[in-house]
Computed example of a mutant assay.
Amino acid sequence: MSRTQDPHRPSFPFGNAFRKILPKGSSLPPKPAEALTRFEKKLGDRLWKLVPENKNDIVSLSWMRRAIQSLCETHTDIKDVMSELDFPVSDWDVKWVDVYLDNSVKLLDICIAFSSELSRLNQGHLLLQFVLHNLDASSSKQLMRASTSLDGWRQHISSKNPRVENCLSILYNLIQSLNLPKVKNSAKGKVLMRAMYGVKVQTVCICNMLAAAFCGSAKNLVDLHIDDRGNYLWANAFKELQIRVNTEIRDLFRTGRSSVLKELEAVDTSVKALEPMTRDGVKPEEGNLFQDRIADLGNGAEKLSRGLDLLTKEVDHFFQIVLSGRDALLSNLRVSSTNSEISENKAKGQTLLSF
């Protein structure tokens, strides 16, 4: 599916874009305003880059890897926004902290589930290697072994992963927490919550797409709806991405496919072609065709394994970013708590001992 026209990026006057997030009678200093504008524009550009230009990109392991890379960049950007806002954690509302910590745990669980599924899929590569080894031989016994391994691979790939199934309920809970928290009397706080809303929308959307692809079902694929009144600079890009990808995933599953992963489907096609050729343990008379099918399987297996490895590394990277952000918040909270305790004790004329 090619893009029919150049993406239309919204252009809003600054006052209109942020009027709804600021307290009445307040004005936003230039630095926080610029930080928010820069963040939203970068998020929009990042989402446009994920909009597939071709249907064959949906859903490939390479597209999944780019999607997780995009999440890594966005989660890194929000740290820069917090730094530019000069809005210390000690000024956060306790509800913001609770929501952030709760959501970060859920994201870590999702990363673990995705890594588990990628590892499970990669285990099938050993079966394919065994198949290819036996197909190199001409004995009936080894051809029968290859046939058995081909059947074993298909059973392995079609099995379900409970961890990924559990992702769906985790994502549902994250979706319920998407709404912007109420912020009173803090322009910087409203800006921070607005930026974090963009992070959460992109994160939930992409994780939902990947979970649906891994689960082999579109029934839990969710279409997120964002408030158009927010005038988010990334809104058009997000809507286009969600429509393109979700529509294609649903269309693919309607055809009866058990997987929408392009690389996995290519290997499965080769396996289906080789199964009748090896079932009787007799080498087919169509020698050239048989060798072509073996070559197809070898190439497909290599692409699948390489794609799974690269995606696994990106998921691990995202896990570390989420974990480091969570650790940094907890560390800042401890420092803030300690400083507050020191100030209180000094006021009482007490001395704290350091061990």
Rank of each mutant, 00 (worst) to 15 (best):
D6Y: 14
P10F: 00
P13G: 04
G15E: 09
R19H: 08
P23T: 07
K24H: 02
G25P: 02
L28E: 03
P30D: 08
P30G: 06
K31M: 14
E34K: 09
R38K: 14
K41F: 05
R46Q: 14
L47R: 09
N56G: 11
S70R: 02
S70I: 00
D77F: 01
S83F: 10
L85Y: 08
D86T: 13
F87M: 03
V89H: 09
V97Q: 01
L101V: 14
L101W: 01
N103Q: 14
S119E: 13
L127K: 12
Q129S: 10
S147T: 01
S147M: 03
T148D: 08
R154K: 15
I157P: 01
S159C: 06
N161T: 01
L168E: 02
L174M: 15
V183H: 00
G189A: 09
G189L: 04
M196H: 12
Y197Q: 10
V204I: 11
C207W: 07
C207V: 03
L210F: 05
A213Q: 06
A218T: 08
A218P: 01
I226A: 01
D227T: 05
R229I: 01
N231K: 11
A237F: 00
F238H: 07
E240C: 11
I243G: 02
N246F: 00
T247P: 03
E248M: 08
D251I: 06
L252S: 12
T255N: 07
S258K: 12
L261M: 04
L261S: 06
K262V: 15
T278A: 10
R279V: 11
P284M: 10
E285C: 08
F290M: 01
G298Y: 00
G300T: 10
G300V: 10
L304E: 04
L304W: 04
R306M: 05
R306Y: 00
G307T: 06
D309K: 15
V315T: 10
D316H: 15
H317P: 01
F318N: 12
Q320S: 14
I321M: 03
I321H: 02
R326W: 00
L330A: 13
N332R: 08
L333D: 07
T338W: 14
E341D: 12
I342M: 13
S343C: 11
E344T: 01
A347K: 14
G349D: 08
